[in-house]
Design a protein around this nucleic acid. Structure first.
Lengths: 348, 348
DNA sequence: TTGTACGCGTTATCAT
DNA sequence: ATGATAACGCGTACAA
């Protein structure tokens, strides 16, 4: 019969007990410093003491107190992540990228939400700093670039959805959203559409503004005058798409295609169209922006401009790690990509 | 002109500087203990010193180092959350509930992922313990109940998707999944369906097993013999729904309705049916389980059994807070609820 | 190679 | 009411 000498899970994972280096040292008959040395491989230790200590560690299920370690070493092995909403598929794609980018580095993400509120965002970042995170990733939001730079004087920061020039300890990861808006609209134009509506994103968000600019540039290039009646305000969420379609329909412009500022907006638009008995893509073509995982499973699957959200998160993590380590932190991002599925079709 | 005496954001949020109580004490001409007393309101302090200290705090932008506080006080004001996938809408609904349940309490969630892997889950929980979280919320997963009880000897735990009896410092939040499976199937039966397929969840997951049991009970009650050919294995994800439909169709049973083990499975099934030109709900009725936010926006909107995922997260947080405070921690959960939308219809 | 003593930043105890 | 001192658990300079 196998004797269970220490508490462990059914699969053999030891369960940390809360023992301290002192107790381990006492049990092994050595000094605490020797235990520390063995733990960190910071100096040579005689074989017999090493064995004694390792045995004691195992028997006591000792795991170093990361709080104490952090206090002593001056870093917490934690990176703060400011997201806007934990229930948003868009942000969570990035979160997954961050998680993967951090995997195996010993760093753990501490996630807080800003809810698109500049004041709340700043307060959350302050919280992260009080917890002495070693770096912060900011996923878009409404804080000003100046504020971010200000914060970065105290802790390295990587931000997405912001446009500031890279500073000493601050990097902005940006995609060419203007180009994305252009690509989406251009795709529609190529299919023969001439009356193309746009449901925009959050009013003052740089991404939203740029996508709209791309939409206008494509139109202009095709010699089609910009019609403000074809553009309605959205909010990057499904509900904005629903409302947007309602408004568009009220204005009684006969659009044949819609460019939604993001996929979630497109989902809402899709539903509103369905409610009105307007078929996609037979009656109206619909294109989104982001390529969320769910867009593969809509009916019909959504044509969209793929934004490498996951990769952005992953890259943000790597760049932040660079910044923390005092390295320059270069970034090379994948490009936007048109993903043609089944919600867009040639105008009959 | 307003003089800016200290560094702050454009909206007036002060930026923590990393000053210590010692520096504040020096600047105010008092002892560190007095500063601490004022910070924590732990004893009466003369008005003049209070003012001096508060001024020093403001000028230095002092914020207490939570790491040091935690070490000293013996608790970290952090609760660990073991989720399975940060990119899953299901788990993120709960995460949102947890976030809200923790709001205003000073506790912050530290989120780690187990990826449905018992070994990884145990390892992650160990990590959380090393970081000295004050409690842990486990969102389903594959760890055994015994392991969870074992962990709970060292730190309070609230778990969902597990069935163990409440222990001293461990609570399991469960819904009646069997009833849910029954409700879904019963709804289909009421609509006149007699050949009802089921795409199951993860093979050995208690929730999946119970939902299947509910399906069987409803069938039995209606006097319909159970047909194993109508049940295929899924995995709680969209891909499982796609594969499930393919298998079902191969078996050439002429089902008129489908009960998918969860909404994501239903999404996949919906797409597979669309690909085959099978209309929902005209040709086949489809019902899911969970009522994810996205289910409102599918075309057509998905009929499903609403599981109060958000409330579960919120409740988990409150119960854990109780456990941490040494209170009993009672739970009273909202019930499952049939949400009839547009993917189910009466059999012609 | 090993141990002692100190400091990380905070709070609690004990004097005064 | 206030200050000096010890302690939380760990890592490390220094001494041996």
């Amino acid at each position: 019969m196998k004797t269970r000498t220490r508490s462990e899970t059914s699969r053999g994972e030891p369960i940390p007990s809360g023992a301290t280096v002192l107790e381990v040292a006492a049990a092994a008959g050595v000094s605490p410093s020797t235990v520390s040395r063995i733990l960190n491989g910071t100096a040579r230790v005689s074989e017999e003491k090493r064995e004694a200590v390792e045995k004691a560690i195992e028997q006591l299920n000792f795991k170093p107190n990361l709080l104490a370690q952090s206090l002593k070493r001056g870093h917490s092995m934690t990176v703060g992540v400011l997201t806007q909403a934990v229930d948003s598929p868009f942000f969570n794609e990035s979160l997954k990228g961050i998680e993967d980018g951090l995997a195996g580095t010993g760093y753990a993400p501490l996630i807080v939400s800003g809810h698109w509120n500049a004041k709340e965002e700043a307060e959350r970042v302050g919280l992260l700093m009080a917890r002495r995170v070693d770096g912060i990733i900011i996923l878009t939001g409404h804080m000003t670039d100046e504020d971010i730079i200000l914060f970065s004087h105290h802790v390295p920061i990587v931000a997405t959805g912001h446009v500031f020039e890279a500073a000493e300890r601050a990097s902005a990861i940006r995609l060419n959203n203007e180009m994305g808006g252009y690509m989406a609209t251009h795709h529609l134009l190529e299919l023969g559409h001439r009356t193309i509506a746009h449901i925009a994103g959050i009013a003052d968000h740089p991404d939203a503004i740029e996508r709209l600019a791309g939409y206008r540039r494509a139109l202009e290039e095709a010699g089609i005058p910009f019609d403000p009646d074809l553009v309605v305000q959205g909010d990057f969420r499904e509900s904005g798409g629903v409302v947007g379609i309602a408004q568009l329909l009220e204005r009684s412009r006969l659009f044949t295609a819609i460019f939604a500022a993001n996929d979630q907006t497109a989902y809402g638009a899709r539903l509103a169209l369905y409610r009105k008995g307007i078929r996609v893509p037979e009656d109206v073509s619909l294109i989104g922006f982001d390529d969320l995982p769910a867009s593969v499973y809509t009916t019909p699957p959504l044509t969209t401009v793929r934004q490498p959200v996951y990769e952005i998160g992953r890259m943000a993590a790597r760049v932040l790690l660079d910044l923390i380590a005092g390295r320059p932190g270069s970034l090379q991002l994948p490009q936007l990509e048109l993903v043609i599925r089944e919600t867009t079709t040639r105008l009959r």
